[in-house]
Design a protein around this nucleic acid. Structure first.
Length: 149
DNA sequence: GCCAACGTTGGC
DNA sequence: GCCAACGTTGGC
């Protein structure tokens, strides 16, 4: 089992929406490295749900993969903002996975707090210039972060 | 709004 | 294959 961190902008898709809807399709990933990680995800893998581009960036909830990667239909939809003219049904570029919410954290574990913990310095999230929206989290980092809650 | 860092595109 | 230009991400 692998553990993950997935970023979403709360203005676009907040954790509260995943909680409310009970299931969510993680579409719109248009970065190859992130896509490759999506393809590595397995049913049951735990996920930190991270809010980016907002007043308090940080981890806000826990989620879980409930369905493995499959073609992201928005890449074929000319009316979608995620449309990709270079993607063909027999040669797709982009995948999505399906998540379910587990629970909200009791409080936001902020980016600033993660940065302040030197034992987390190796996290992908904290690397210089790192922008990956889907990224692995080690078991040690996962446990250490959850203890902060 | 600013801007650094990064990824992608496309000319050559 | 190189690399400049451009678009995007995301913290601040």
């Amino acid at each position: 089992m692998n553990r993950w961190l997935m970023k979403s902008e709360p203005d676009v898709y907040p954790f509260e929406q995943l909680l409310r809807e009970g299931v969510g399709r993680w579409d719109g990933v248009r970065n190859y490295q992130a896509r490759n990680y999506l393809r590595d995800q397995r049913v049951g893998d735990p996920v930190f749900f991270y809010h980016s581009s907002c007043a308090l960036p940080g981890i806000v909830g826990l989620a879980e993969i409930v369905k493995r990667a499959e073609p992201d239909p928005t890449q074929f939809d000319a009316s979608s903002e995620y449309f990709d003219a270079k993607s063909k049904p027999d040669a797709r570029r982009w995948d999505l996975v399906t998540l379910k919410p587990v629970r909200a954290l009791k409080r936001v574990i902020s980016l600033a707090e993660l940065k302040a913990d030197l034992k987390l310095a190796e996290m992908v999230l904290l690397q210089r210039g790192s922008r990956l929206s889907v990224q692995p989290v080690t078991a040690a980092h996962w446990a250490r972060i959850l203890k902060k809650e």
